[in-house]
Amino acid sequence: MPSGSDRSGAGAVRAFGALLWRDVFVTGRELVAFLAQVILQPLFLLFVFGKVLGDLGYTQDNFAQVLLPGVIAFTAFLTALQNVAFPLVIDFSYTKEIEDRLMAPLPTSMVAVEKVVFATLRALIAAVLMFPLGYWVLGEVSITWAAVPAVAMFLVLGALVGAAVGLTLGTLVTASKINLVFAIVLTPLLFTGSTQFPWVSLDDLRWFQVICAVNPLTYVSEGMRAEMLPSLDHIPAWVSGLALLGYLVVFMAIGIKGFLRRAID
């Protein structure tokens, strides 16, 4: 860009900040609704599978601690995914509210990136809340202080990949098909993401293990377990990390392409 590229760059950064601030501002006013939306499902999952089944003697003693990292991973991944996909589908199909943001002086792809960043922030809040809630429901949380940075990294990566998958879905799916697509995509995603079981233990169920290996959520769950329960057999953390980076690149590329296609005729 000629002469004014610096100014225009600064303007784009300011616009990006303003878009993010708008989303934070709106969420701040709907905090209770937001928390109910993101906390209830993982909380019940944890309570029934970790606490109730354990107390009734249907699961082994350490299952609750196997489940907890998976539930936190699932919270980060799916909160991010839904927080990008649902608003996008509605915005592009019905309300067109996004148009004012598309007319802001910043590259159109940055509007998509803002959606991903904001959804990641929301997902991280939800995921972090699962630690005290897990302690409250289960009575203990298996984690060492030394593991915190790596756990944080997996949560950020997991939320980013979830948001990128959400961007892909949100721009590919039309409003009339959203219910169908989410039923077809979300349920398998939830149950093939190694959240309720360690992936390595699936050796005897080879076909299912292969399917789970395709699901990016598996690498979030396994990465979390590698850090929180290192004694349990798990996919090496670096493999999970690389897999997530790969998924992030692929889904961001597809998602941004889809976003540009919807935003510009």
């Binding site: 225009s8 708008r22 067109k96 148009e99």
Partner: peptide, 23 residues
């Protein structure tokens, strides 16, 4: 060539109301 710079100089009033309903 310079859509970002152009957007700073123009404004649009669309056919359909697209106001931010959360605000």
């Amino acid at each position: 060539a310079h859509p970002v710079a152009a957007r700073a100089r123009l404004a649009v009033v669309p056919q359909r109301v697209n106001l931010d309903r959360a605000l």
